[in-house]
Amino acid sequence: MSVDKDVAALAAKEPAPLPTARQIRHNPLLVPLRPVSSGQRWFLGIGFFVLFFAFWAIATFGGWVSPTFLADPLTMVHEGYLLFTEYNFSLDIGMTVMRVLGGFILAAVLAVPLGIMMGSYKLVEAFVEPFVSFCRYLPASAFIPLLILWAGIGETQKILVIFIGSFFQIVLMIAVTVGGARRDLVEAAYTLGASSRSIVRRVLIPGAAPEIAELLRLVLGWAWTYVIVAELIGSSSGIGHMIVDSQALLNTGQIIFGIITIGCIGLLSDYLFKALNRRLFAWSVAP
């Protein structure tokens, strides 16, 4: 009873007041939860990259780090130019993107319906959730030897690595999202005469759709880490294959360029995914 009283007392308290004008005047930049404009966000984001490359240039051009271990920015750019002009690096990029999209789309197509079923029906969740939770902790790279035996070293093996790394994460997160639907909406739908199937189709799925889209955006970022692992073994193309070849030659400029290329493509895909989510679910996606 004392715990209930404490909870009731906390709930009865008035919300914390917003910062006063004097508080903001003393510290105008760092105000908790204060939004920033789109222009400020772009300026600050680009500014971080400028500082990063500045420190990198100082460390390499100043002789603080040996070129054997870390190439300078100009060498990295030159090696990237050679990759595109002499080593057909654009083909490697295309192959990596194709593998990521293939494995991710296959995982999403199968995982989203299963996750919705688990979140909607507790019997399904009780039956499937222990196995999904077990598989979620298994590293996708551990399956590579088996996948090479089962599917060879072709494209199927690499797509399956991405599929395994993404599928179980998507299933469990979507099940949690759908299962956390507002009970009052479900009860209101039952009161209006909705059937169990209608509850899932017209209440649970629409309510969870924005969060499901955001979860898919996050897992797409994880898929990029799995594809590099898949390309490190038994691959003759792709960004990961190029990085392995460059490591054998101690060409850190090409290695860094490959890593930056992955980051740029991943960042672009993330922004495109976020823009699509804002367009589809403009009422719920945070800016």
Rank of each mutant, 00 (worst) to 15 (best):
F257W: 08
F167Q: 03
E214G: 13
G180Q: 01
P210N: 00
S246Q: 09
I239H: 07
W283D: 13
R183W: 02
F281G: 10
E231W: 01
I262V: 14
M173H: 06
G207H: 05
T225D: 08
R197F: 15
L249M: 15
T225G: 14
W283L: 13
D270W: 03
W222M: 09
V203S: 07
L192K: 03
W222I: 02
I243N: 07
V229F: 10
S195P: 08
V227Y: 05
G240P: 06
W222H: 10
R279A: 12
V186Q: 08
Q254P: 03
A188W: 00
V178G: 11
I170K: 04
D245W: 05
M173A: 12
T252L: 09
V171A: 12
Y226D: 08
F281M: 07
G180H: 00
F281N: 02
L232Y: 14
I228C: 06
G207K: 05
Q169S: 09
F273G: 13
T177A: 10
S195I: 04
E231K: 01
S237I: 07
V227F: 00
L192H: 11
L272Q: 09
R201T: 12
G180L: 00
L185I: 04
A223Y: 07
M173R: 04
Y226H: 07
D270P: 02
I233H: 12
A230P: 00
A208Q: 05
D184N: 11
A175C: 03
I255E: 00
L216T: 01
L276F: 13
K274T: 12
V219W: 06
R279F: 13
E231G: 04
Y226F: 13
V178L: 07
I228E: 05
L204S: 12
V176W: 02
L250M: 14
Y271L: 15
R217V: 00
I259Q: 10
S246I: 04
H241L: 02
M173P: 01
L172N: 04
A175Y: 00
Y190P: 00
T225S: 14
W224R: 00
F273K: 12
I199D: 02
R183L: 09
N251V: 04
R217N: 08
Q247I: 08
G253W: 06
R197I: 13
S284C: 08
R197A: 14
W283R: 15
P206D: 03
E214A: 12
V186M: 07
